[in-house]
Design a protein around this nucleic acid. Sequence first.
DNA 1: CGACATGTTGAACCTCATCAACCGACGTGG
DNA 2: CCACGTCGGTTGATGAGGTTCAACATGTCG
Lengths: 223, 223
Amino acid sequence: MNEDQIQALNSIARTRLIEAGQVIMSDQEPATFFANIISGTVKLIKNTPDGRQQIVGLLFAPDFLGRAFSRNNPYFAEAATDVEICMFPNAAFERLVESNPDLQHRLFERTLDELDAARDWMLLLGRKTAEEKVASFLLLIARRQLLSGCTHDGLGQADGSFALPLTRADMADYLGLTIETVSRQITRLKLSGIVAMNSNRVMAVPDMARLAAAAGQTAAAQG
Amino acid sequence: MNEDQIQALNSIARTRLIEAGQVIMSDQEPATFFANIISGTVKLIKNTPDGRQQIVGLLFAPDFLGRAFSRNNPYFAEAATDVEICMFPNAAFERLVESNPDLQHRLFERTLDELDAARDWMLLLGRKTAEEKVASFLLLIARRQLLSGCTHDGLGQADGSFALPLTRADMADYLGLTIETVSRQITRLKLSGIVAMNSNRVMAVPDMARLAAAAGQTAAAQG
DNA sequence: CGACATGTTGAACCTCATCAACCGACGTGG
DNA sequence: CCACGTCGGTTGATGAGGTTCAACATGTCG
């Protein structure tokens, strides 16, 4: 984004801190704002009427949260970790986007990326085994945390280890598994030496290629 | 779309007929065109290195097919039925979109809809039972075929029955199941009277609410 | 310390995948 | 014309991968 755009955005922005576990947007009420994630991890959640739950997306900094043109939002957004977001009132943001084709273009590309990510995940949910699912998730986080700078949470970094932003329960909801299965598969990956865990939430990956193989991908390929 | 837009589109368009089973776009080669589906059903497919397959999207008329701004296309597009499409060379189409914010806006909204659909399907893949999956698919098709006009294929219509655009194998790949499981679940739905089948590919739904219930949705709700 | 949340491990069960046989429709060629 | 292969679909028997239920461990906070 150029200077003008950033200026314009800042002039209507308001930052906010949200604790882990808090609901940011409900699927019941229409969204009133658009936001940019500064730090932390946000879960997008869908529920069945009888209470089953599926995480349909994870958002990290600097992802966007919210619906561009205010139809109502079909999922819950919940903070997985403590989250810092930068909020824009919906109406003001939309005006800005309307008058700024470049910004709209950026939003469009971000949305296409999200669509790709969602479809990758459909392959995982529909066709991968429990071990591949868990390995895929750990690989996703490992790449994210190690490549895109530090973790911002004071854990890991130096020795190449990093923090998992989700609890076992959240992982299960993201992978279409149960808590127990996630736990067992992590144990298996530890035993086989593919990952090492300093604690329940801090992990290290000695050999990314092995993890990628366990995730059912040929070394180089996709996310 | 307004008259000018349609004019502009038509001037660069070329229609084409594609037989069921033919590949329209490969994930290997970069996409060279953008297209509009006139009739028929297109599958978007993802594969694992070892040959497992997942359908990550279905496209019907009048959906768009292709990537707006020519990054390479990460999936296969294959004709599920005979398909009629209207093709635009990528470069020309992009120029048109660039100069036409309204059209871009439309594309954006379509993409958001696809994202919602993908995430709905993630819930299905991750958390629904085989019976719910099959019922959900049949419900999706039933609503689509019965609401949005006729079926264009000469089957069904009059008596409220309609054709299934997918084989059992395709349904399995769409639902994250095996052919056998799909077949058995359809049999179960027939036995319980929730659906009736005139032949393997032609179906009728006496009571949509019952089908919706079998799909694990409360009567009114989502797709 | 006790209460509660998060995570691990074990045993039993069940859903769905796998393997296999079979059916009907269709097209081809002897 | 009918044998033959193929393709899409159905049905059955069996078994494995994951769920479920339950107990236990660990960590944190009052």
